[in-house]
Simulated assay, not measured.
Amino acid sequence: MSALDFPPISLIIPNFNGSALLKANLPAVLRAAADYPGTAAVIVVDDGSRDDSAALVRSEFPQVTLIEHPVNQGFAEAIHSGVAAAPTEVLVFLNSDVSPAQDFLAPLVGHFERPEIFSVTPLVLDKQGGCNEVSWRCYHLQSGRFRAMQWAPPAIFNHPWKTLFASGGSMMLRKSMFTALGGFLPIFKPFYSEDFDLGLRAWRRGWISLLEPRSRVVHDSGSGSIKTNIAAKYIRAVRIRNHFLLEWLHLPARDIWLRLLPGYLWRSASRLVTFNWVYFAGLAGALIRLPEALRLRTEIQASATLDFWTLMADIEHSQHH
Rank of each mutant, 00 (worst) to 15 (best):
A166K: 06
V218L: 13
D195H: 03
H140A: 11
R174Y: 01
A152V: 05
I208C: 04
R205E: 07
M172V: 11
Y139W: 06
A166P: 10
C138F: 11
L141D: 01
F188S: 01
S167C: 10
M171I: 06
A166I: 02
R204D: 05
Y192F: 14
R137F: 09
D197E: 11
C138T: 15
R216D: 06
S209H: 03
S143N: 15
S167W: 14
S223Q: 07
V217Q: 15
S176T: 11
P160K: 14
R145L: 07
F157C: 09
M177L: 11
C138S: 15
L141G: 02
G199D: 06
A180V: 04
G224H: 12
F157K: 09
F196I: 02
A180I: 02
L200R: 03
M172G: 08
L164P: 01
L211M: 10
I208V: 12
S215P: 12
N158H: 15
S176F: 06
K189E: 12
E194A: 12
R145Q: 13
F188A: 02
V217D: 15
L198G: 03
R204F: 02
K189G: 10
V217Y: 14
G222S: 08
W161M: 09
F146D: 08
L210N: 10
A155L: 15
L211D: 13
H140S: 14
G206I: 00
F191W: 13
P186V: 05
S223G: 04
S223M: 07
M177A: 04
R214C: 01
T179W: 03
P213E: 03
K162T: 00
P190Y: 08
F178N: 12
R216L: 03
R205L: 01
R201F: 02
F157M: 13
